[in-house]
Design a binder for these strands. Structure first.
Lengths: 231, 231
DNA sequence: GTATAATGTGACAATTCAGTTACATTGTCA
DNA sequence: TGACAATGTAACTGAATTGTCACATTATAC
């Protein structure tokens, strides 16, 4: 699951259907609109992460919609992919001119659709350029996605990395297991609270005895990252 | 026929026409774009060997275009010549600062154009002016487009070369498969993410077991080039 | 000190992810 | 045109990761 919501705007339900299936298989959520009015409502209500809109639509063309979206600062950032039955260059250019981010000519394969969609989303969300965090010689570098002590890289799994990153960016603060599950595992996963303990254990192991004092148990509550040694 | 493709970017069709004739007589192929959007498309689709771009363009200046091209490793090597109506020194400097390879002031003779163009292509053909990159005995030389360990040249395909070049110029940085596709394959291609894995594999094979530790897997994310061995 | 609750720890099975190979397709060069 | 290299993809294999449990250990209240 990517958690990305895609709005499909097309008056032909068969096409929406086809696209919906492709999206579902690729792990995207989707919303459907069969006309421009409906589309506007959905955009306001659900704020999709990407919009697929047909070139030809009753009650206003996809071009018009795109133009309006791109003018409005609250929606300008939502990437738009245009669909068209014709492969006319003119349309393409016009579409791109009003700010569409990509353009697909029908007929297209589900695969192509998903690929383009991925490419557009990729471009749309440039990931932040975080600074490394260094505490007591323990360095976590989000750029290289690596944790080092001195120059020695530590070996740990992705979950331990995320857990450590969260704790280090919120040091001197105690978190319950539930909070950690929320923040590190993500909202709606069902995982036992004790699982956190196990990952804390793995994390401490990965960090080693010289620095594992940084990850402290807060009895009755959860855990805390702190540079202050307990007495 | 030189087989070189030149992209002309100008909003005035009369100027494009004039340049096109000059290029044709000199035995170059040419492509035309009348705005920035179109230019981007063509660059991605056709990968011209040289770009002629007008300083003043509707929908984004030629400077912006150049800056963007030069930032992107997949297009950075394409030489750019700027055209301008004015002979202001300021423009020239700004143009060259963002990475333009040459600069022609209008009005210019077809002959002058072709002469400059030849000069730039001559300089540029041994791709870019980059310095060789050497890490842990592994050397990538952009001039000869060759990778060596010590004095032994390694055998690898173009994609592996580009991949390695990208990773080496951005060492100590983890990239997702999606990002690598973007950077190495170029934005609009639609290719499976797992394809990256296969090319990584070919790259590691080409590099050999003595140095393949440099190309590291970042589980759950992608890959990283790093001189730091993980324990 | 003892009972009890909370946390630490190692082992496991399932699952996910990356490595690897084989193959089909495309592009290139002679 | 035919040979060959390069590329992308699917399928299989193997390894790392993950969540959970059972049991050990530690802390706390009385």
């Amino acid at each position: 699951m990517t958690g990305k919501k895609v709005l499909i705007i097309d008056d032909e339900s068969s096409i929406r259907e086809m696209i919906a299936i492709a999206l579902e298989m690729a792990g995207y959520e989707y919303l459907e609109a069969e006309n421009i009015q409906q589309a506007h409502e959905i955009i306001v209500d659900h704020r999709p992460d990407l919009i697929l809109v047909d070139w030809m639509m009753p009650g206003g063309s996809g071009v018009e919609l795109t133009r309006r979206l791109k003018k409005d600062t609250t929606t300008a950032e939502i990437p738009v992919i245009m669909l068209t039955a014709k492969s006319e260059e003119d349309n393409k250019i016009q579409g791109l001119e009003v700010g569409a981010d990509d353009y697909i000519t029908k007929p297209f394969s589900p695969r192509e659709l998903v690929a383009r969609l991925k490419a557009v989303l990729r471009r749309a969300t440039p990931q932040g350029v975080d600074e490394p965090i260094e505490i007591e010689g323990l360095t976590l570098d989000p750029i290289s996605q690596r944790v080092t002590i001195g120059s020695r890289p530590l070996d740990m799994g992705p979950t331990e990395y995320r857990l450590l990153k969260f704790l280090m960016t919120h040091q001197e603060r105690a978190y319950s297991r539930a909070q950690l599950l929320d923040q590190v595992w993500g909202g709606n996963v069902y995982v036992e609270e004790r699982t956190v303990d196990v990952h804390i254990r793995r994390l401490r192991k990965a960090i080693g005895s010289t620095h594992d004092f940084l990850i402290q148990t807060v009895r009755g509550t959860g855990y805390r990252f702190s540079a202050k040694r307990s007495v």
